[in-house]
Design a protein around this nucleic acid. Structure first.
Lengths: 398, 398
DNA sequence: CAACGTTTGTCATACTTGTCAACAAACATG
DNA sequence: CATGTTTGTTGACAAGTATGACAAACGTTG
C-alpha cells in the first residue's frame, strides 16, 4: 500500500541521502555535499549537524587545496560509533564478523564444520559461541543490527529460511531464532548468500557503476544474485536468483532439484571435472589440477574448459537477452576458471546475444572474493539504519 | 544522480499518489482517499482541491450508502479534460488512438499495410495521415502527450528505435521524427510493444495485483515484457524483455538472430505448425486448423501441442526460477493455444520449477487481447502527467 | 602586508506542506 | 426531535527547506 508523504519523511530521506553519499564517495566536504544533493548550504548544515549529534559522522578540518575561498569542513563516517554483526551460514563453514559503518571489518571468526553438524540447533549454538568469542576478543562499537546469510531460499519479510536443500533445512524461522539466541535485542535480517554477494560486488566490488548486473557464483551448485535498475531483485516470495536452475539442455542430466538439464548440471564443478576425466567430487583441488593440466596443453582438460565456456555463455546470454544487463560478475569456480576460458566465452557470447552490436556487456571476475558475502551481509544489517538514520539511532540509544 | 528532496517534491508526490489511487481504484470518496493514503482530511482536501483546479478530477455528490455520518463527496477522474495519442507501429499494421485519462478509448483508427510499405518515412506519413483523420472525425480533449509502440529494441531515454529487424529499421530517432511530423509540440515517448502490453496487463488486465510478472506474447517471433517489484524492467540500454532469444536447445535450429536454439525457434508459430505437418507460414488460420484437428484427436496435432507445452514450460520455468514471478500472462499465439495445452503445461512446469512446493505461479491468458498495446502505449504517454500532475498541466495550459 | 575577490558557514526570516484540534455540517437511528 | 457518527472546514502549529544578508577563511595582487 502506497502511503502519503509527510514532511518528516522528507527529513528522513535527506538524512539517508547524505549518509549514503558519504558511504559511497567517502569523506566529502560540506560544499561537495551541497553539489551532490542539490540542497542548500543551510539545509546541509542542518542535516550534517543532526548526523553529527547522532554520532554517525564526524566533521574535521579541511585539507588546504590551494583554491581561494573559505575552506569547507570535511565530513566523514564515524567508524567507531556503530557496527553490525554479519553471520554467514554455509554448509561446511560458519562465520561471524563485526563490521563498522564505513565497511571496515573490525573482527571476524570462521569455523569449518563437518557435514554432519548442520542441524538448526547446532548451527545456532555454534554461531552464538563464535559471536561470544568474537565479542570478548575484539573491542568494538555498539551493535545496532545483525544480518545473516544462508545458502537457500529466504523470505525477507519474516526472515524464514523456506528451504535450504544443502543444509537440509525447511521452514526455519532463522531471524527469530537468532534474535532469541543472541539475546541482545538485535533485529536480524536474513538473506540469500548469492544475493548478498551480488549486493557487495555492486556497491564496492566489480559491479561499481553498474545498474543491471548478475552475480554468478557457485562450486557444485550455482546461485546468483540479480540487480535490476540498481536494486537487488528478491522476487515475489523472496526466492529470485535461482539461476542454476534455468533449463538449458532438454537432453541433459538429472538435476538434484528434480528437473532435467538445469544450468548447474552443465556448468557446475562436477560437470567440469567429469568432462576432464577427473573425480567429479574432487572439489577445489581437482579444479586446480584441471587448470594445471590445461596449462600443459592436456587435450581433455582443454576440451572440458571449452565446454565449460560454451555452457556458461549459453546461460549468461539468456540472462543478458532477457534482462539487458551491463555487467556479469563471476564468482567462485567461475572466477577461478575465467582467465582460462575468456576467449571462448566471449566468442560464444557474441554468437548467442540478440543484436549484440552496440551492446557491451562487461564480464568480470568478482573483486571481493570470499569477503563478498561478509560485506553484503553487513550491508543488509545496516539497511534499516541507512533508510532511517535518526529513527534507528534514537530507538537504539534514545 | 540522487537529488535532495524539497517540500515541493512532497507535494508533487502526494498529488501523484492521489491521482494514481483514483486511476487504480476508480471514483473514490475523500474519506476513502484518506484511508488509502494515510494522509489527514485536511491534506486530502488541499490535494483534491488542487487537482480540481487543474481540471484533472471532478468532485460530485456521494451516493447515499445507508451509513450514519456526513457523506463524503466522490472524487473521480475528469475524462473530458486531457487525452493522449497512442501510436502503434506493427509490421503489417499501424494504429492510432486517442485515450482519455480514465483509460477510455475516445477514438481509434487502424490500417493494415503491405510489407513493402514499412520504411521510416512512409510509416511516419501514414501515421500523421491517420492522426489527422482521427482528429477530424472524433472530438476529443486537449492532447497532452503521445506514446508510440514499436516491435523492436527501443531506448527510452531519447526515443531511438535502435533496431527493429522485422521493420528493417536501425537507429531511427522515432520520438524526434514523430514530434516534428505531428507538429503539435507533443512530447513523444517510445516503447517496445511487448513491454507496453505487459504494462497494460499489469495495470488493468490479467496481471492486476501482481508484482512480479512476465507477459509472453508472440506469433512468429516471441517477445515479452517483464515486471519486477511492480515496475517495468527496461534494462541498461532499454532492451530488456527479449525472452524469445533465451537459448533453450543447444541442438536446436538456427534462429534469425544468428544464435542457435533460441526459445522462439521452439515455441514460435512456425515450429508449432511444422511439428503438426502444416505449412509453417500458414499464419493464424493454420493455427486454428491445428486446434480443430487436435479437437478431433488428430495424433500429429496433439503431439505438436504436447511439444509446444513442454517447450513453453521450459522457458517459463527458467524465467520463474530466476525471477521468482507470481504471474505469467500469455498473449497472442500462446493465449490461443493455452486451453489446449493447460494440463501438460502445468505438469511440465511443476517438474521444472525449483522447489515448486509452496510457490504458486498463476499462468493465465491475456485479458486485454489486441487492445493491450493500445492501453499500455497510452499509459506510457500519460506517465509524465502521473508523475507530476501540476507541473505538466501548468506547463501545458499555464 | 594590506586590500580585494572568492568561497563557504551561520543566522534570522519566509514559504511550503502537512498535522492537529475544535467546530460545523450531514447523515442514520431511536 | 434528540442523539450519535462520520466527515468537511478552518485556523493555529510544527517541521522542513529556501532565501538573503553577513561574517569568516582562504588565495591573489599590488
Amino acid at each position: 500500500m502506497s502511503i502519503g508523504a509527510r514532511t518528516s519523511h522528507l527529513r528522513r530521506s535527506n538524512l539517508a541521502l547524505v549518509l549514503d553519499q558519504l558511504r559511497r564517495r567517502g569523506p566529502s566536504s560540506r560544499s561537495q555535499l551541497v553539489a551532490a544533493t542539490g540542497l542548500t548550504r543551510s539545509a546541509i548544515a542542518g542535516l550534517v549537524g543532526e548526523l553529527e549529534e547522532l554520532r554517525l559522522v564526524i566533521e574535521g578540518p579541511s585539507e588546504p587545496d590551494g583554491r581561494p575561498g573559505r575552506p569547507s569542513p570535511v565530513v566523514r563516517i564515524d567508524d567507531r560509533s556503530v557496527a553490525v554483526l554479519a553471520i554467514e551460514i554455509f554448509v561446511d563453514e560458519i562465520g561471524v564478523a563485526i563490521v563498522a559503518l564505513d565497511g571496515s571489518i573490525l573482527g571476524a571468526e570462521r569455523r569449518s564444520r563437518p557435514r554432519a553438524r548442520v542441524a538448526v540447533a547446532e548451527t545456532i549454538s555454534d554461531v552464538t559461541a563464535l559471536v561470544d568469542q568474537l565479542d570478548a576478543a575484539s573491542p568494538h562499537p555498539r551493535l545496532i543490527g545483525c544480518g545473516a546469510s544462508v545458502t537457500g531460499l529466504v523470505r525477507d519479510a519474516d526472515g524464514f529460511v523456506v528451504a535450504a536443500p544443502n543444509l537440509g533445512w525447511t521452514d526455519v524461522p532463522l531471524a527469530r531464532l537468532l534474535t532469541a539466541a543472541l539475546d541482545r535485542g538485535l533485529a536480524v535480517r536474513v538473506g540469500n548468500d548469492a544475493d548478498l554477494g551480488a549486493l557487495a560486488e555492486l556497491r564496492s566490488g566489480a559491479g561499481v557503476g553498474s545498474d543491471h548486473m548478475v552475480y554468478v557464483s557457485g562450486e557444485v551448485g550455482v546461485g546468483g544474485g540479480l540487480i535490476v535498475a540498481g536494486r537487488p531483485v528478491v522476487g515475489h516470495f523472496g526466492f529470485a536468483g535461482e539461476i542454476g536452475h534455468m533449463p538449458v539442455n532438454p537432453e541433459g542430466r538429472q538435476c538434484r532439484c528434480g528437473s532435467i538439464g538445469c544450468w548447474e548440471t552443465e556448468v557446475g564443478e562436477r560437470a567440469l571435472l567429469a568432462r576432464a576425466g577427473l573425480d567429479p567430487d574432487g572439489g577445489r583441488s581437482a579444479v586446480e589440477e584441471l587448470l594445471d593440466r590445461a596449462a600443459g596443453d592436456d587435450r581433455a582438460a582443454l576440451a572440458a574448459l571449452d565446454a565449460e565456456a560454451r555452457w556458461l555463455a549459453m546461460g549468461i546470454a539468456g540472462l543478458v537477452n532477457v534482462l539487458d544487463l551491463d555487467t556479469v560478475v563471476l564468482g567462485g569456480l567461475f572466477a577461478r576458471v575465467l582467465p582460462a576460458i575468456r576467449r571462448q566465452l566471449d566468442e560464444e557470447l557474441v554468437r548467442r546475444r540478440y543484436l549484440a552490436a552496440g551492446r557491451r556487456v562487461r564480464v568480470v571476475g568478482a573483486a571481493l572474493g570470499a569477503s563478498a558475502v561478509t560485506v553484503g551481509t553487513a550491508e543488509l544489517a545496516f539497511r534499516s539504519l541507512l533508510e532511517d538514520p535518526a529513527g534507528v539511532m534514537n530507538a537504539t540509544f534514545g
